[in-house]
């Protein structure tokens, strides 16, 4: 039990959970509006797209890489899908658009995968380059403009609700989008992939030590390649869901999201150097950012302060965990010595 507790305190998740809880309680005490059905549903629904992105980026960061191209990738695939189906007068359900997005996402992810996995080029620079290429394809080749109408099937998918939560006091109601199910499924899938398959363990191993991973028998190149393919698919799904939920496609408004998503993942305890992190932490960190971005208004902080809070959160959060690492190293050294002394 004590050992379990000690191990728990060494992890990041409990702390981030406590911070999250404290923030929720603070908002609740100040506004009385946090733990209301409609607010919780609002947060859950606001979590879907950033949450999906975060899952992808979490896997990439654990592998020792990074991806800044996912917003451009998602924008390109969702725009191309929406535009093509609109032009074709498509009236069917969500399945075809989703399948198209996923195929395109996989293909574009594979581009990242080839450069990073097979050529071994630095992930940061490659994805910076592909991000630029994807954006150029969207704005140049596809001549992207804002699409105010989207195909009926996508519109439907965006407005369908699992259930509607109504706040008895204010009378406001919020819909729980169907896409939340997709999000939940991807959470489980990524959790399973990372914990119960050798593909996932290979990602952890690679993030720890790539040479050793290769020696141990992981196909590191192949693993990296498929990793970026998967991340491309998750990102493209997120892009399409966002289009559906917004009922329109604004080609550039996802661009620039990458940094806050990465920040959330890192706040959740994923080591930026790779090899460590968990789905739980990644979700908690993202949730923290989402709540700060969406709920500050509830405690009377004007929205103009949003960036200040998010920025401070990133600086303080990463600062505290950086300090922890330094302290942990020192403690470990001390512990070894005291153990040795005790033996002698």
């Amino acid at each position: 039990m004590r050992q379990w507790l000690r191990r728990l305190t060494r992890r990041n998740e409990p702390y981030i959970f406590l911070v999250l809880l404290a923030l929720c309680l603070l908002i609740e005490v100040r506004s009385g509006q946090f733990f209301t059905a409609n607010n919780l549903v609002d947060i859950a629904s606001a979590m879907v797209v950033p949450g999906l992105f975060a899952l992808g980026i979490y896997m990439v960061i654990v592998s020792g890489g990074i991806d800044v191209s996912f917003p451009a990738l998602a924008s390109l695939t969702s725009y191309a899908t929406t535009k093509y189906l609109l032009d074709a007068g498509y009236t069917g359900g969500i399945w075809l658009p989703m399948a198209m997005s996923l195929v395109m996402g996989a293909a574009l992810g594979a581009v990242n995968g080839v450069f990073i996995g097979f050529f071994g080029l630095p992930a940061m620079i490659v994805t910076l380059g592909t991000s630029s290429v994807f954006k150029g394809l969207m704005q140049g080749a596809l001549n992207s403009v804002q699409l105010a109408v989207i195909p009926e099937g996508m519109r439907q998918f965006g407005t369908d609700a699992l259930f509607v939560a109504t706040n008895p006091v204010s009378g406001l109601s919020s819909r729980m989008p169907v896409s939340f199910l997709i999000f939940a499924a991807v959470v489980l899938l990524v959790f399973f992939l990372m914990r119960y398959t050798y593909f996932g363990r290979g990602i952890y191993a690679m993030g720890g030590n790539e040479v050793s991973a290769h020696r141990a028998g992981f196909h590191t190149r192949r693993t990296k390649f498929f990793l970026y393919v998967i991340v491309g698919m998750i990102a493209s799904a997120a892009g399409l869901i966002r289009t559906c939920m917004m009922q329109q496609n604004h080609p550039t408004n996802m661009l620039g999201m990458e940094m806050n998503i990465i920040a959330g993942v890192v706040l959740g305890g994923t080591a930026i150097t790779g090899g460590a992190g968990s789905v739980t932490g990644c979700m908690l960190g993202t949730l923290l950012i989402v709540i700060v971005e969406n709920s500050m208004i509830l405690i009377g902080i004007p929205t103009v302060w949003k960036s200040v809070f998010v920025g401070a959160l990133i600086v303080i959060g990463t600062g505290v965990s950086a300090m922890q690492v330094v302290r942990a190293n020192r403690l470990a050294a001390n512990r070894n010595l005291t153990q040795e002394a005790a033996k002698a």
């Binding site: 990074i66 940094m259 990465i262 302060w305 960036s307 920025g311 990133i314 600086v315 300090m323 690492v325």
Partner: peptide, 19 residues
């Protein structure tokens, strides 16, 4: 504080823009 530069300047950027 020893925050990796990519994160430190990312957070700082958000903070400066916020201000």
């Amino acid at each position: 504080v020893r925050i990796p530069p990519i994160l430190a300047t990312l957070g700082a950027s958000e903070l400066f823009t916020g201000v």
